[in-house]
Design a protein around this nucleic acid. Structure first.
Lengths: 342, 342
DNA sequence: AAACACGACGAAAACGTTTTCGTGTTAATA
DNA sequence: TATTAACACGAAAACGTTTTCGTCGTGTTT
C-alpha cells in the first residue's frame, strides 16, 4: 500500500531536518517564509496529518474516553451513548465503545484493553453477570492504577468512583403512585432478579408507594422475571392467578409491552380492566396499542453528565478528588395505558 | 495521580536495562530464571500492561477499526455494530464508534480524526446530508491515502471500495408482491426523498412488482416523506385522499408504525381495510397492534460481513486488491398487519 | 594454554511527534 | 574592526515498546 506521509519523508524531500518541517507546518516564524510555504504546499498535497499515536504517546494523553455498555441494541444505552458522544465532541474528545454483552469475562477483557493507555478514562454500566457474580476486583485494580472511572445506571455501591444514576427509587414510586391515584388497587410488579440493582431499587419505590397507601405487599404480585426462560409464560401466569392484578408496573419497556399483548390475548381491556406502566421511554412505548405510559429516564442527560464527570476527573488528577453520585430525575410520560376516561 | 508503571520504572527498580525487563516479561530464556521471576512478580504486583500506543506506533498498526454511523439510536445500526463488534472481538480487534448525526460536516470531521493513524480501516454508512450534498471527496482522499474503507447500507456508487448492502430492491419487490398476493391492489409507498439511495432502491422494487402485476403506478400513492416537517401529517393526507390505498408499503419501521396508528384513528381495520408492511425488523414491529409484517434486513449479518471485508483488505494491502459489493438477502417476516384470514 | 561456546545481559534503533537548546551565518552596531 | 543581534535552521531528548546485535565473563574443549 501507499505508506503514510510523515514529517520524516517531507524532510527528506526538501533535504531539511524534521524539526524544520514540524515548525514550518505550525507556521513558526523561525522558518523562512519561502521554506515554510513550499513545505506546507507539499504537505497539503499529500494530505499530511500528524499521527495521533505519536502525539498521544508524547503528550501522555489520548483525548479518548472508553465506554463499556452491556448491550447496544437497547434504546436506553444508545441514548446514553449519544449524550456522551455529543459532549465529547464539543470538547474535542473521541469515544471508544465496547460491548460486554452482559458477560463478566468480556467486561474484564474490555477493561484490560482500555487500560493499556488508549483512553484517558472509562465510563461503564456493569454487566448483569458481574452483578450476579459480585466480583469487582477489575474495577478496584484500574482505580488503584489511577484510571478515572465513571459508572452509570448499573453502578456498584462499594466501588469508590463517580456515578450517574436515574432516580430508580423515585421512578418506581412515581409509577406505582400513579396507578394508585388512577384508582387501581391490586398492583403487581414485573421486575428483575434482585442482583440487578436498578430493578431492585425500582421495586423498593413500588413497595414504598404501596405502604404509603396502606396497600398490602403480596408476594404473588411480585414477579422476578428470569430472562433465561420463557418471559411471556411468566407474565401469563400472573394474569391467570385466581385473584389477578388490575395494575402492572413493569421495570422496563419490553416486559410492559409483552404484558399489553398478553392482556389483549386474554381479552382484557386496557386500561379499564388492567392498567400497565413501563420504565424507560424507548421507541416501543409510543407505538403499542394502547400507547404505553412510562417513567422517562433521560438517558441522554445521563450520558452528558457522565462525560462532564469523567472530564473533570481527567483534568484533576493531581488534586485529591472527591467522588460523588449524580442522580438524574425521572418523570412520568402519561399515555393511554393508564388513563381511564371518567 | 499515580503515574503508570512502565518498563523503564521496573528497570530502574532492579537496576537492569529496559531490554532485560522486556525480555523477562516475555519469558525469554536469555534472562536468568532468578531475574525473570522477580521482575515478573514485581510487574504483576503493579498490574503492568504494555502501553498500546507505543506498541501500535512501533508495529504500525492498531488492531482497531473505526465505524461511522449516522445515528446510534436506531435499531438497525445498533444491530450492525453488534455484528461488527462480535467479529472484531473474535479476531482481537477493537471498534471505535463515531456518530455523524446525519451531518456532512461531522462525517468529514470523523473521517479526518480516524485517519490520523488510530485505526487500521474504516466502516461507514454515509450521512443523509452527504448523500444530498453529493460530495464525496473526503472518501476519495482517504482511499488515495491507502486507508481501507468499507461502506454499508448507505453506500455511494462511484466510490471504489468494498460495500455491503441489503437487497433493497428485492426487499421492496417482496414486500409489494406480498401485498398483491394477499389481494390488495391499491398500494401506496411511504418512502424517503430520492437522494436517500436505500429508499429509492426499495421503491424501484415496489414499482417493479406493480408492473409485474399490471398495476398502475400512481403518483399520488408515492409519498416521499420530508422528515423536517410533520411526518404524521404527510401520512394522514395519503389516507384522506378520495381514492385511498388499501395497502401501504413503508420503507422503514417508524413510517409503518405511524401509519398503523393513523389508520386506527381513522377507524380503519388492519389488515381488512388496509394492510401495512414495513422494512427493517426492529423492536417496534412485534409490539404494534396488530403486529407489523416487515422485510427483515439482517443487520447483524451485514455487520459481520463488513468486518470480514475490512479485515481482508487490511491484511492484503500489498496485493492489487479487488473490491466488490456484497448483497445480503432480505426476507419477509409475516405478522398480523397483512395477513387476512380467509 | 589457546580457542571456543554459551549464558546473561546491555545498547541502540525504530515507530512519529514536539520542543528546547544550541549553532552558524549574515547584518547591524559601537 | 570587533562585538552583538537577528535570522534560519539542526540536534537531540522524550513518550514506551520490541528486537537485533553486541559484549563481557565464565567454563569447556582441544
Amino acid at each position: 500500500m501507499k505508506t503514510k506521509i510523515t514529517l520524516k519523508k517531507i524532510a527528506k524531500e526538501f533535504d531539511v531536518s524534521i524539526s524544520t518541517v514540524s515548525k514550518a507546518l505550525k507556521d513558526s516564524h523561525e522558518i523562512s517564509e519561502e521554506v515554510r510555504e513550499k513545505i506546507k504546499a507539499f504537505a497539503a498535497y499529500y494530505h499530511y496529518k500528524p499521527n495521533s499515536l505519536a502525539l498521544n504517546l508524547r503528550n501522555q494523553k489520548t483525548k479518548t474516553i472508553g465506554v463499556i455498555i452491556p448491550e447496544i441494541v437497547h434504546h436506553f444505552f444508545a441514548k446514553v451513548i449519544s449524550g456522551i458522544e455529543k459532549k465529547a465532541n464539543e470538547q474535542g474528545y473521541n469515544v471508544m465503545i465496547c460491548l460486554s454483552n452482559e458477560s463478566y469475562e468480556k467486561e474484564v477483557l474490555n477493561m484490560e484493553m482500555l487500560s493499556k493507555g488508549i483512553v484517558d478514562g472509562i465510563i461503564i454500566s456493569v454487566a448483569k453477570e458481574t452483578e450476579a457474580k459480585d466480583d469487582y476486583t477489575h474495577f478496584e485494580e484500574l482505580i488503584s492504577d489511577g484510571i478515572p472511572i465513571v459508572m452509570f445506571d448499573r453502578v456498584v455501591e462499594k466501588i469508590k468512583c463517580n456515578k450517574v444514576i436515574a432516580d430508580d427509587f423515585g421512578g418506581g414510586f412515581l409509577a406505582t403512585k400513579h396507578l394508585i391515584d388512577e384508582g387501581f388497587d391490586k398492583i403487581a410488579i414485573l421486575t428483575t432478579p434482585d442482583y440487578v440493582t436498578v430493578g431492585k431499587t425500582r421495586m423498593e419505590g413500588y413497595i414504598k408507594a404501596l405502604e404509603n397507601h396502606q396497600l398490602k405487599i403480596q408476594n404473588d404480585y411480585i414477579i422476578r422475571i428470569d430472562e433465561y426462560s420463557d418471559v411471556a409464560r411468566q407474565i401469563e401466569k400472573l394474569l391467570q392467578q385466581e385473584n389477578p392484578p388490575n395494575g402492572i408496573f413493569a421495570v422496563n419497556e419490553i416486559y410492559a409491552a409483552t404484558a399489553i399483548q398478553l392482556a389483549h390475548k386474554k381479552g382484557l381491556k386496557i386500561p379499564e380492566d388492567i392498567a400497565i406502566i413501563g420504565f424507560t421511554d424507548g421507541l416501543i412505548s409510543s407505538f403499542t396499542y394502547p400507547s404505553l405510559t412510562t417513567v422517562a429516564q433521560h438517558g441522554r442527560a445521563m450520558g452528558e453528565k457522565c462525560f462532564d464527570l469523567i472530564l473533570n476527573e481527567v483534568n484533576n488528577q493531581d488534586t485529591q478528588y472527591q467522588h460523588h453520585t449524580e442522580v438524574i430525575g425521572t418523570d412520568l410520560k402519561v399515555r393511554e395505558s393508564t388513563k381511564v376516561l371518567k
